[in-house]
Design a protein around this nucleic acid. Structure first.
Length: 613
DNA sequence: CTGGGGATGGGGCCC
DNA sequence: AGGGCCCCATCCCCA
């Protein structure tokens, strides 16, 4: 029953009650930790994702819970944790995570030595008393006051007022996550925490052990990942609220010590914290990610991450175990997605494109006081040292590239022409959003390019493009656009015309019942899209659409079919899907009597009737 | 091989 | 913000 070393131990405990030195493996705990850390770096058995700024870290709940009561409460219910980026930056969190898993404080790759003020703040926030004490001792020794954590030497986060001067470049930290090529550590690449004794503890050697790559770097501030690039903040800044369900559930826990104004006890803030900088390529999470969808998993599938190492597709499956072909399809879709997005996302194709140009008021409701983007953002360029912005746009999508898979080859339209600094900008408010290698951004269209040459080449195409848009706008203004289009095959507008709709779009002829909806609609005429996906950089006109899109990245599929276990990102899809099981075919073709489970298939069918061939 | 149908994913947009 | 519904695109199966 019990044998081997275990039996030996058991005898020791049961019999003698004390353990002689010969009965104890002195390195057991060390080895165990080492193993855990290795597993973490490989993403093996990781069951929780921690999002800091836009970096994603994978870890083990047990380890986190054993280290911090804060984490203990968080991981209890959540598989995805968003940390307050005001309290801890991704770089600092990387150090902290390393500390948790190694008991050693490894230097970040940016500063010469750990920034103890920052660490102290973060350790306090995360309720890691030992680390906090360590930092305090270090600070004391260095003669630095403790309380400066959030100040100058603190998190490095620029005050809101200084947003413009920080964060210009956000190097793509997630490309590894996205395309699996860059920045992503393979398990081999990820150095393990060396068990050697010479490994530094506090402030020791400067070698980059575990964190060699992908540290968040703020070129502007020169501070490593201290949030300098992130200007989130409750309320402002670059970070885009993802609004993911999972984040909302993060249990509130007040920060322990230096009590910054931040209130982690506000779920909304936790949610906010997932805005921000690019996803970390340094984070173990990406180490074994063949696809970012793997990062998914739903709240109800805590172990989704398991097995990802061996079966990248596994995480895409519902608990019911979709047929293999399903997952293959899904996989194929993921690839195909990049090709297809351009079409769907193109504002020039389906939209009642209007010649309004970038709308200054764009971010009014979504991003508060941020400088929106586009032209306005270009002003910001003059105001601060923007390095290499990165900001893709619709056109990028049109080109069949959305940064998710081929960020490296984006903007391959060749390079010539003159560099125009005016075409480089950073979209204020999104400075921590990175879109692969596209650091050179065209202001008018916000398209990102990996090189100035490519940007220049692109800039020259703008004349035609703008003309095109104007024509579209003129055309669309004259007659209904998508609405008519929609009326072709379905008649959703019966009630549409019935109610009074006093709010009329100034660009097209559409009317709305309330000003909010009108405002929302008018955004569709803008040339820029205010809501970027923090993972792939795709731009959206509506926050909700972006949030929904994010769910697909993260594999969040809250709606499960009771029958087969298949999961969906949208309730509507589930409803639709349920007809597969019920056999209900509510949509009937009036021409041939054919019945369909889905309206869209009826529509498709009707086209067959109406098409000339 | 081709076309139709079933099913699904993603984005746009309105409520 | 989220739900709902629209569209497009696509894959797979099958006749």
């Amino acid at each position: 029953m019990v044998s081997g070393p275990l039996a030996l131990r058991w005898c020791v405990w049961a019999g003698r009650g004390d353990m002689g030195p010969d009965m104890e493996l002195p390195s057991h705990s060390k080895q165990l930790l080492l193993q855990l850390n290795q597993q973490r770096t490989k993403g093996f058995l990781c069951d929780v994702i921690i999002m800091v700024e836009n970096s994603i870290f994978r870890a083990h709940k047990n380890v986190l819970a054993a280290s911090s009561i804060y984490f203990k409460s968080l991981v209890l219910h959540d598989n995805l944790i968003n940390l307050d980026t005001d309290m801890v930056s991704s770089t600092v969190f990387q150090q902290i995570l390393d500390f948790i898993y190694t008991g050693k404080l490894l230097p970040s790759d940016q500063p010469a030595e750990p920034n103890f003020s920052t660490l102290l703040t973060a350790a306090s926030y995360l309720q890691l008393p030992e680390l906090a004490a360590l930092c305090r001792r270090k600070l004391k020794r260095a003669g630095k006051p403790f309380g400066s954590g959030r100040g100058g030497a603190g998190l490095g986060r620029s005050p809101r007022g200084q947003r413009l001067s920080t964060a210009s470049v956000i190097q793509a930290r997630y490309p590894g996550l996205v395309d699996g090529r860059k920045g992503a550590h393979t398990p081999q690449e990820l150095p393990q925490a060396k068990g050697s004794d010479e490994e530094l503890f506090l402030g020791g050697s400067s070698q980059e052990s575990v964190h060699g790559l992908g540290r968040p770097v703020c070129p502007a501030s020169g501070e490593a990942g201290l949030g300098g690039c992130s200007t989130n903040g409750s309320g402002g800044g670059c970070e885009q609220e993802l609004g993911l369900d999972l984040s909302k559930k993060s249990p509130p826990l007040p920060p322990a010590t230096p009590g910054p104004p931040l209130t982690p006890d506000d779920p909304a803030q936790l949610s906010d914290s997932q805005q921000g900088s690019p996803l970390s390529a340094s984070a173990p999470p990406v180490a074994n990610s063949a696809s970012y969808a793997e990062l998914g998993g739903t709240p109800s599938e805590p172990m989704d991450l398991e097995g990802a190492e061996d079966n990248p597709l596994s995480l895409l499956e519902g608990p019911g175990g979709q047929p293999p072909r399903k997952s293959l399809r899904h996989s194929a879709r993921k690839k195909e997605w990049a090709k297809k997005e351009p079409m769907a996302a193109s504002p020039f194709e389906r939209r009642e494109a209007a010649p309004k140009g970038p709308c200054p008021g764009e971010e009014a409701e979504g991003l508060g006081d941020r400088v929106p983007n586009g032209i306005l953002a270009s002003n910001a360029v003059a105001g601060g040292p923007y390095g290499e912005p990165s900001y893709p746009c619709k056109e990028e999508e049109e080109n069949g590239k959305d940064g998710s898979e081929d960020s490296g080859q984006s903007g391959s339209e060749g390079g010539s022409g003159h560099a125009s600094a005016h075409y480089m900008y950073r979209q204020e408010g999104y400075e921590t959003v990175s879109y692969g290698d596209n650091l050179y951004v065209c202001i008018p269209c916000a398209k990102g390019f990996p090189s100035s040459e490519q940007l220049n080449a692109h800039v020259e195409t703008h004349t035609e493009e703008e003309l095109f848009i104007k024509e579209e706008g003129a055309y669309e203004t004259g007659s209904g656009g998508a609405e008519e289009e929609a009326e072709d095959l379905s008649a959703p507008s019966a009630a549409y015309a019935a109610e009074p709709r006093p709010f009329k779009c100034s660009v097209c002829e559409k009317t709305y019942k309330d000003p909010a909806t009108l405002r929302q609609h008018e955004k569709t005429h803008w040339l820029t899209r205010p809501f970027p996906c923090n993972i792939c950089g795709k731009m959206f006109t509506q926050r909700g659409t972006m949030t929904r899109h994010m769910r697909s990245h993260l594999g969040l599929k809250p709606f499960a079919c009771d029958e087969c276990g298949m999961r969906f990102t949208r309730q509507y899809r589930l409803t639709e899907h349920m007809r597969v099981h019920s056999g209900e075919k509510p949509y009937e073709c009036q021409l041939c009597g054919g019945k369909f489970t889905q309206q869209r298939n009826l529509i498709s069918h009707l086209r067959m009737h109406t098409s000339p061939s």
